[in-house]
Design a protein around this nucleic acid. Structure first.
Lengths: 141, 141, 141, 141
DNA sequence: GTGGTCTAGACCACG
DNA sequence: GTGGTCTAGACCACC
């Protein structure tokens, strides 16, 4: 059954992006590893009660982002992690993500210092929980 | 010169939200205060080279959010400050936004320290442009 | 009317890729320049007798590749050229393209030396025809 | 060891085409000659860990292309060498393939010299693995 | 008017 | 069985 993906219809985030983000997150956190197979387009579509096209779109995005690769007639598989984007592009995307955060904070009327503290706390939590790869070695099916 | 709004076309954030957020920010930071008048829809549209509909929609949202109120025939005015969201809600939404940022950074393979630096830089840029101390002044009428 | 895109149904290359490649080519050759607007999804779909979704897919790809950007309610525009992919990724993609060429040549029974000569000829033709940017300056609408 | 076919899963080229191309290549280079017998479908499928259907499809294509012929109950054999495509057709197809490569390189912003180098490197790799001089020998039966 | 998302269902290529 | 492409047509957000 791999990883339990779930989507929330009614969110403002498009369904296909929810799938992409959950898979990315699973990969980054080590819950999914290279060579792991994603559920087939049809199966996931059925499980999540979605149109197969929507799932296919998500998978296509993952392939373009270098997170997964499609093997004709076999399925879609997680790939070895690799840096697809240039430094400039990565920094551009980081800036976009930061803009989103800052805008949300401004909108909520949260003080800059509080935003920074919240981020620091989150990053520190990350470091503690994530020696990552080696510890997950046991999780091979 | 009043509020000094600026929008960036080409951002993923809709223009009308940019306006909403900047007004909210101005209110939170004290750059705009209760009873201050917002520029007229027509004037702001002209100044920012926008479709008046876009400005109108932003003002509508501000009114719905309780940040401003429309006075027929007079204009739109900032209302008494009040918390639109509960503290719990604000903190929840901030955490969500932070999760998004952190996930994107992890996906891009960017170091936590670099994320913090980028945010700090962005927040410092904010501070520099904001402290237009309570010497507020409605722009024209 | 911008650039005259045309597709050939019945080719083994998917229609959406044909569009992508033609726009890329137009950009690289200077026939389209930053800020130029692409035909609207609906218009191009009608002109090429395609489903709008197919055109949208092509445009989406261009946006993801950093060749164009979508402005809500305005249209899709060519962006300033920028390096989206990392060196490793670019070399990976070049290798894929070279594999395709070599495989076709093997299939056709063409000698390696002849492949190299044909490529050299093509590259030399490029250099001659393409001082590129400055000479196109006049072509602003 | 006969033909020494190898396939690379994960390539964008379908497996069955890889087989077709490698056999064509072997014929062109003299590694296989008229009357040589190809490995049986079952054997090759087993050796390459493929679905027998895939091998059968490749052999079918070779027969359709006139490169090989099936002899009922005996096996599949290389036929007398003959040009499947006219010179003009071959040159046209080569030019198309070269255009694809050059377009991709331009899009990626790769220097012509680097394209040539990459191709040279690839062709040299080919030559090294090919010259299994006319000491041909059908593998088993 | 613009693009973005989603559904429904068809057909093809590949294994 | 798998994924890939395309069509048709709906609904939404934004300008």
């Amino acid at each position: 059954m791999g990883v339990d993906l779930h989507i929330s219809t009614g969110s403002s985030i498009p369904i296909y992006r929810q799938i992409v983000e959950q898979v990315c997150h699973a990969v980054v956190s080590g819950a999914m590893r290279p060579e792991d197979q994603l559920p087939s387009v049809r199966e996931l579509a059925e499980r999540l009660v979605l149109n197969p096209n929507t799932v296919a779109r998500a998978y296509g995005q993952l392939v373009r982002d270098g997170v997964a690769e499609a093997r004709q007639g076999k399925g879609v598989f997680i790939t070895e992690r690799r840096q697809v984007y240039s430094d400039a592009e990565r920094s551009r995307r980081l800036d976009l993500a930061i803009d989103n955060l800052v805008n949300e904070a401004l909108f909520l009327g949260i003080e800059p210092a509080d935003v920074r503290d919240a981020l620091d706390k989150r990053l520190r939590a990350l470091k503690r929980q994530e020696p990552r790869n080696p510890t997950h070695q046991a999780r091979r099916s």
